[in-house]
Nucleic acid binder design. Structure first.
Lengths: 232, 232
DNA sequence: CGGATAGTTCGACTAGCATCGAACTATGAA
DNA sequence: TTCATAGTTCGATGCTAGTCGAACTATCCG
């Protein structure tokens, strides 16, 4: 029985606490060095190095050398999606959650998921764009003509997005909300613009903080749905 | 660092080859017994039992007792989705996927469930006897007078059934059809008679095969409802 | 009742692997 | 060159957990 299904090796890779810590630390899409990841995982650099070698071999991570540093990042947004989905599963497992600090509440409100907005605000953003008729579809999202005009006006180079390999729209299941938020190239571009305009800023870790005026600007732009409670 | 992120425990659970085999075996939504899952995983029943207890505790599986069997199924379609996503990740490491054979379709059509008929035909059988007015009740089934006469005429010793400890009628949830079929002593006796008359025969494993003339005989006996598609 | 089958629990064995110390390589700075 | 920092490799250790045999419980059959 040495020959398990493919799924087992990948899951086992994610299943080690140290590696899981590293992966979650990388979920904001940034690249981190071996030392930083070792600290995040709470292990020594040697241990981290061996873990990272295995994650790299499995193509869950990609490595980049810069001088004497080696930067690791998630190899693909798809990896982040799977990690989010696993968090969702872990939620219903219940029973064993301990760290319910204030940081946790902030994460549930708004956080970065690889490179796009997630959490309560992320789900609300997708709901608002759908209600405005800018994005249509249920499982397979696509941009409506009116939406394309809006996004261009918002400062997004839709031409570039549409020519790139990466899908423009992609649903991404939100672990804290149990509903989808907007991923893909458009999701990333939207967050970029929002951060650029100062409507939100990055907090510690994956936290995204919306100041009061930023929230008002979001509501003015995307409609009241944005701050409405997340109903179906 | 005993306290890893939530994600790790779930992933570790999936990461064991034996458990992963069990989960993939359950991915079609059917419910399987401990023995069947042990065989699917290539481990002994004791080992399977302990694995299943852990998967159950984590709410990845739900258990249902039926007689001396214990049926496990994925607790939620969401679990299957995550497993699919993990398979997608595993693809990039380069590996092969296994696909279910034609045997699966046969099992869904008609199979033996402990000692009575299950699957599409099993669900249809209960529907037909109800429509004929031979069996009444929704959750707690019982035999109507006209039904008792019919079953005696069909060659079933109803006296013996009614005196035995085992319940005469029992609903049994069908995993492939998601509706109830007829279990209990009567369900077992019915299948016995049908097999005796040669209207159906046991195939490999749990498969029950209905030849064309047997199907016609069933329809003549139990009414056209028997071969009608299973609609609520 | 007694025999048979399904499943659980317990205990012991074992293998794998995560971990870290120590030594080694590689890049950068002075 | 010399020192410092970043990371890798190797070897030894220790712990976890997967595994199965054996004994036990529960259900069904006659």
């Amino acid at each position: 029985m040495k020959e398990g299904p493919v799924i087992a090796s990948v899951a086992a890779l994610i299943g080690d606490p140290a590696r899981a810590n590293m992966l979650t630390a990388l979920m904001d899409g940034r690249a981190l060095t071996v030392s930083e990841l070792a600290q995040a995982a709470g292990v020594t650099i040697q241990t981290a190095s061996s873990h990272l070698a295995r994650l790299d071999a499995a193509n869950l991570l990609t490595a980049e050398r810069q001088g004497r540093h080696r930067y690791f990042r998630l190899s693909d947004p798809e990896v982040a999606r799977v990690l989010e989905a696993l968090m969702g599963l872990a939620e219903r497992t219940g029973a064993k959650r301990v760290r319910t600090g204030p940081r946790d509440a902030e994460l549930r409100t708004a956080r970065i998921c690889y490179d796009h907005l997630a959490g309560e605000r992320g789900v609300a953003l997708l709901a608002a764009t759908k209600r405005a008729g800018w994005i249509a579809g249920d499982d397979d999202l696509h941009v409506a003509p009116s939406g394309r005009a809006f996004f261009v006006d918002f400062g997004i180079d839709m031409d570039r997005l549409e020519q790139a390999r990466r899908p423009v729209c992609k649903t991404c299941l939100d672990w804290s909300e149990r509903r989808s938020h907007l991923g893909g190239a458009l999701g990333a571009a939207l967050l970029d613009r929002v951060l650029e305009r100062g409507w939100a800023r990055r907090g510690p870790g994956r936290v995204i903080a919306f100041p009061a005026d930023g929230l008002a600007a979001m509501r003015a732009t995307f409609g009241d749905t944005f701050t409405a409670s997340t109903e179906a």
